[in-house]
Nucleic acid binder design. Sequence first.
DNA 1: CGTTTTTGACCTGCGC
DNA 2: GCGCAGGTCAAAAACG
Length: 275
Amino acid sequence: MDPTESSWRLGGGDEFFFGSDKDSSILSEFGWNIPAETSCGVGDSDRIDSNFGGESTSDYVSVPAPRRTATEPTAVEEKVEASVSSSSSEDQPEKSMASGDSSQPPAETASKARKKGQKRIRQPRFAFVTKSEVDHLEDGYRWRKYGQKAVKNSPFPRSYYRCTNSKCMVKKRVERSSEDPSVVITTYEGQHCHHSVGYPRGGLISHDQALFASRLIPSVHYPVGLPYSHSLHAAQSQHVPAAGEIGEVHEAISSQPQVDQGLLGDIVPSGMRNG
DNA sequence: CGTTTTTGACCTGCGC
DNA sequence: GCGCAGGTCAAAAACG
């Protein structure tokens, strides 16, 4: 297991936290409302540093993604929860590049070089707990699955996804809770440097969603019920969910399971859902 | 034909 | 130092 997990485990994190007012700032810093200037393509750890104000190591923020809809068969009931993860896994700047770039030399060189020389830089992460029948929730972005692993304490495998945008190095990992098979834990890592774009064969994301994506961050608040401060962040990530839901989610989170018409059922704070 | 998913192997980091 | 578990890569297969 990785240390990382413990750090950013839902509600378990304790390294990063921002105040309520800061949330928006932070998020925006991460570029979750970012147009496309963040640093895509740049692929350097620099971007993280910049965003985090120089601390390349401590950074975990989240990258909320706008949830979508159309392809989702039954996402009607989803409890979303998010938490910020921090610390832990360090992500690799170069690595991303290497992997992202197929044109790059065999991963061997790249991977080796990168690992030995320096530590991987961690990227902001956001974990969402969603109650849904489908593992892979649409968030407005296109993801490509690049791996799957069995999880030690869980009968369910963990899937690893990467944004299909060649310049975007955002990753996402999805796994089902061993406690509640109906609960899907989605962790976003990194930040999109582009708007949500099309949907896989299912159609393009609607304009609304794109728009939504661009502004979801700022409007969010954090779930009052969350036990951890980080949760707030997480909460924000929830917003990401769907266009038009922002408002709803926001409310739901902060006050009660409100729900959005069909998209979000009720939000479940990490600490609360445990019961 | 192009893209995505699947799957096994490899590498890295951490705990003991 | 060894073993374990997580995370990623890459080749092959499947799908649209």
